[in-house]
């Protein structure tokens, strides 16, 4: 589903502040894999995710999604396959627009944005039913601007928005980092059930080792731009939390 071949990324090349964020990283994800990425700050986790999403282009190496070489494809074009949830809940939704408008945009992620009015009663009903599954009582506030909601509510809606249109890959960049523990667990459970239900290939970046331990069928630890540890499903299952904490000491 996703294949990274010898990806390197250098920022500020040739200057005194040159940084090699990724060094010859190769990684292959099968369909419906759920990869968890851990690693300290500056280890290259977010750069890795950005290179898959297209927010950054790699300095060398290839990115292959569903058999197509997308290495030079702009982020908005890769949205055909990829949905994203950002660390900052404000990044994934438009504050000035209503909940309904936000969902409408998400529902046409992979298609052209035409000069037709797409919000009708059946669309409204579809969004209402979807939001009702969260149990946050937001299904009757569809006209409310996104900006009036809490970070946890926005992040939950961003997750639902990611499956409004045909999605194959879900990228989660520390989705719970800005949230309180209760909202965080709601978000992770929602993400988990959506990934199962829609058979998504997913990548989760997290600093929360408990989350990293609980979710996913593969785990990698990044360090200084390289993959330091790579655990498959059975290795991950037998991994103890204590062991994970020791990786960082």
């Amino acid at each position: 589903m996703i294949e990274l071949q010898h990806i390197s990324k250098v920022f500020n090349k040739g200057k005194v502040n040159e940084v090699a964020a990724l060094k010859d990283v190769s990684l292959t994800l099968q369909k419906q894999d759920f990869l968890v990425v851990v690693g300290s700050n500056g280890s290259g986790k977010t750069t890795l995710l950005n290179i898959i999403a297209g927010a950054e282009l790699s300095s060398s190496g290839k990115v292959i999604i569903s058999g197509a070489d997308v290495s030079r494809l702009a982020e908005y074009k890769r949205s055909k396959w990829i949905a994203r949830v950002f660390q900052n809940p404000l990044s994934g939704t438009a504050s000035d627009l209503s909940i309904l408008d936000n969902f409408r945009l998400a529902a046409i992620r992979t298609t052209k944005k035409k000069l037709i009015i797409g919000i009708n009663n059946s669309f409204r009903k579809r969004v209402q039913d979807k939001i009702a599954t969260l149990g946050m009582g937001l299904e009757n506030k569809l006209e409310q601007p996104m900006g009036t909601l809490s970070g946890g509510q926005r992040q939950a809606l961003t997750l639902l928005m990611s499956v409004m249109d045909d999605t194959q890959i879900l990228l989660l960049d520390e989705p719970t980092a800005a949230l309180d523990p209760r909202s965080a667990s709601v978000i992770m459970q929602t993400a988990h059930s959506l990934i199962q239900q829609y058979k998504l290939t997913a990548i989760l970046i997290t600093h929360n080792l408990k989350e990293g331990h609980q979710y996913g069928n593969r785990l990698i630890q990044m360090s200084e731009g390289k993959v330091l540890r790579d655990l498959n499903a059975s290795e991950k299952k037998s991994l103890q939390m204590q062991e994970m904490y020791e990786w960082f000491n």
Partner: peptide
């Protein structure tokens, strides 16, 4: 809607194609 969202959240609109 896409046009209005562009001003509100550029990171979101890029991710939404």
């Amino acid at each position: 809607i896409a046009m209005r969202a562009t001003g509100s959240s550029a990171s979101m609109t890029r991710a939404l194609g």
